[in-house]
Simulated assay, not measured.
Amino acid sequence: MTTLWDTTGSAVVKALAAERRAAGALAFGLALTLVVVVDEKNVAAAESAATGAAAAHPCRLLIVVRRQIDAPHPRLDAEVSIGGRLGPGEAIVMRMYGRLALHAESVVLPLLASDAPVVTWWHDEPPTRIAFDPLGVFADRRVTDVSRAADPLGALALRAADFAPGDTDLAWTRISGWRTLLAAAFDGRADQPHQAQIDADPADPSAQLFAGWLRARLGVPVEVTGGGRRGIQAVRVAVDDGEVAVTRADIRSGTITRPGVPPRRLPLRQLDLGDLMAEELRRIDDDAVYADALAAWSGVPDLAGRSGHREHIWRDPMEQAAAPVAEPAGGAS
Rank of each mutant, 00 (worst) to 15 (best):
P221T: 03
I69C: 06
G188Y: 11
T257C: 14
L109E: 15
V38P: 02
D272W: 09
M277K: 03
A17F: 09
P193H: 08
A203C: 10
L268P: 04
T2Q: 10
A190V: 15
L273P: 00
T33M: 12
R215K: 10
S253P: 13
L156G: 11
G242Y: 06
D124E: 15
G305W: 08
L271P: 01
V36G: 05
G166K: 12
T8N: 05
G219E: 06
F138V: 15
L268G: 09
A190L: 12
D162L: 07
L30K: 04
V239C: 03
D191M: 08
L76F: 00
L218C: 01
L276M: 09
S81C: 04
G331V: 08
Q320R: 13
A44Y: 10
A190Q: 11
E327M: 06
D77S: 05
A234F: 12
F138R: 09
A234S: 15
A329E: 12
D199W: 12
G136E: 00
D70T: 13
L34C: 06
T225P: 01
R258N: 00
D133L: 10
M318F: 03
S176E: 14
L153P: 02
G242E: 13
A293F: 13
R282H: 09
P202M: 07
A46T: 00
V43C: 01
R283I: 01
A304H: 10
A49G: 08
G219M: 07
L294T: 04
W172A: 05
G9T: 06
I313R: 12
A332D: 01
R265P: 02
A31Y: 05
I284D: 02
V13Q: 12
R310W: 02
G9Y: 06
T180V: 02
T8W: 09
N42C: 03
E319C: 05
P127A: 11
D204G: 06
P259H: 08
R283E: 14
E280L: 00
L32Y: 03
D191V: 07
L135A: 12
R315D: 07
R179P: 02
T3S: 13
V64C: 10
A150G: 15
A139K: 10
